[in-house]
Design a protein around this nucleic acid. Structure first.
Lengths: 182, 182
DNA sequence: GTCTATAAAAAGATAGAC
DNA sequence: GTCTATCTTTTTATAGAC
């Protein structure tokens, strides 16, 4: 099997257990591959697995979220499309954020830059929509940051409180909130 | 030394490395105690250490944040006091949230309920301020959730983007945003 | 590309002296 | 209350056969 086919299961494992908690034993079990086979696909060990997972995450975001923001249509509609995909990504507020999880643990410096770049691209994609909607660049940047803050905060709070309704409510209103006059 | 004196250093270690990343070796080094001494203070091992850290966190929050929300004064002033303390807690957006970090890793079920209770108490303390300010109970609950979402999201985004200015800006406007008419 | 077997290192935990 | 020493288990990683 090509290594790409194991990325989703690796992704789920790192999201649940984090970098240090996702041991090779768990990874071996989840993928059905022996440890030696894992090193065949990922000679760099867990570091390389995480790097691949983060790379895949960035691609998924680009193709499933950022591309919708850059597409044709009214700003509110494009933001709504983003929220729909984000809702899938976080299972309606029931699953935590991989990017947030992978920032802690041993050797997080290696992951930090990659995660930062992904989040920055997301902010910029939203800011572009807002500039197109006629906002000043500085305000657009702030509102885009606010949008990410709301999404990430809603994931954390919903997951912690075991209350997906919080996530649903916030995602529901996000497009209007972001586009609203001050 | 009494075990309470080690809690702050334990806290810092778990915040940086998470549950699985904070190994006994690191803990031993950070506290200056041998492993056997650690087990003398915390017979239950890491689980008991984390439990103590989370218990201390809840106390700190109660005494330094929730008590200010319940104190005398105008709602906006009390929310502003909260933001000031929160700004210290997260080092102005430079440090991640212990509660968020400890939700992942091996055996997170043990920690989840404790973290959930702490966050729920925080939400309720804010909601009480808003009800006192004349808001309907349901709206007060939503606004309080929104406040926590903003705080947690701002910590995550600021830390990820290495940009404390984002955190500062958001904390600055939080009291007015929460109290603003819809 | 996957396996079995094995090695080397690290982590979690305890016994018993002081 | 802290230490040294030791033990067990787990984790990471590799060698070599198929």
């Amino acid at each position: 099997m090509p290594k790409e086919s194991y990325i989703p299961r690796l992704s789920a494992l790192f999201r649940q257990y984090g970098y240090d908690g996702a041991t090779l034993s768990k990874i071996s079990e989840a993928t059905g591959l022996g440890k030696a086979s894992l090193y065949h696909h990922f000679p760099g060990g867990k570091d390389e697995m995480v790097e691949s997972v983060l790379c895949y995450s960035a691609s998924w975001l680009q193709e499933n979220v950022l591309s919708l923001l850059a597409a044709e249509g009214a700003p509110e509609e494009r933001l709504q499309n983003m929220c729909d995909r984000v809702n899938e990504l976080y299972a309606g507020g029931a699953e935590p954020c991989l990017l947030a999880i992978l920032q802690s643990g041993t050797g997080s410096d290696l992951r930090h830059a990659q995660i930062q770049a992904t989040l920055a691209a997301w902010v910029e994609a939203i800011a572009a929509v807002l500039r197109e909607a006629g906002w000043d660049a500085a305000i657009a940047q702030q509102r885009a940051e606010d949008a990410l803050i709301t999404i990430q905060g809603a994931v954390m709070v919903s997951f912690t409180l075991d209350n997906p309704a919080v996530f649903q409510r916030v995602m529901q209103s996000l497009p209007q909130v972001i586009l609203k006059q001050p």
